[in-house]
Nucleic acid binder design. Sequence first.
DNA 1: CTGACTGTAATAATAATAGTAGTACAGTTA
DNA 2: TAACTGTACTACTATTATTATTACAGTCAG
Lengths: 128, 128
Amino acid sequence: MFELDIRSRQPIYEQLVEKMKELIIHEVWKPNEQLPSVRVLAKELTINPNTIQKAYRELEYQGYIYSIPGKGNFVAPQSKAINHEKVEAVKQQLLKLLCEAFYIGITRDDILSLLEEAEQSAGRGDET
Amino acid sequence: MFELDIRSRQPIYEQLVEKMKELIIHEVWKPNEQLPSVRVLAKELTINPNTIQKAYRELEYQGYIYSIPGKGNFVAPQSKAINHEKVEAVKQQLLKLLCEAFYIGITRDDILSLLEEAEQSAGRGDET
DNA sequence: CTGACTGTAATAATAATAGTAGTACAGTTA
DNA sequence: TAACTGTACTACTATTATTATTACAGTCAG
């Protein structure tokens, strides 16, 4: 399920956060679904449980999951991920990246295509 | 000119790369303009010349500047920054970010506004 | 040519961070 | 009770970022 690049200069826990975020955004992992336990996933990926936990804490901080001690970690309903600061941060990131895109010659039409693609693949269920 | 956050977990040289890239993209630094020398900038920012050099090497690798040993570092003409791999990489980043944007409730119209803003500010000397 | 710039390279030492290993404690559930 | 779950903490190692220092070579104005 996860292909981690140990040799990458990007820390393992950051790679985990990115890939899990994708699974959540694309609703491969549905709201309130239970995530693999830190110990099970650590064993499966042959990495340390602490590293998984670090990724889970980061995902919780960003509003993508919530945890119930003793029970497990669960995908947060989308509403939890929506917070004004985060929205502004993503907008700013987006603006930067769009400027860069124009600079290196990506056209407005290219971007509109990507927009279509994103709109179709992103979780579109507007449930709770 | 640069406000560096030493306390940030983001390495100084990465912060430099980001900020300089912005200056180049927004044509505050024009093509073929000479960048500050590694020693002068290091003294100005009270950091080590090696750290500046690392940032310059990264910018050169990404095609945003070129260097002439003995003379200095210079802003690359835009054509140098355009390389197929980079274009694809930025497109992929953009797609990911757009998906995330939709997920957290940013609307299509919001994004179209950002697109306008980017189109106007990229390469026209506007500030961020 | 000299002197004062420029970039580049390399080494060594330090500081900060990522990752592992192990242990312990508490809540949940069958 | 037993076997899960999350969380917290300490200690150790490996990696990386950053600094400090030195050295060498190209450029250019005097």
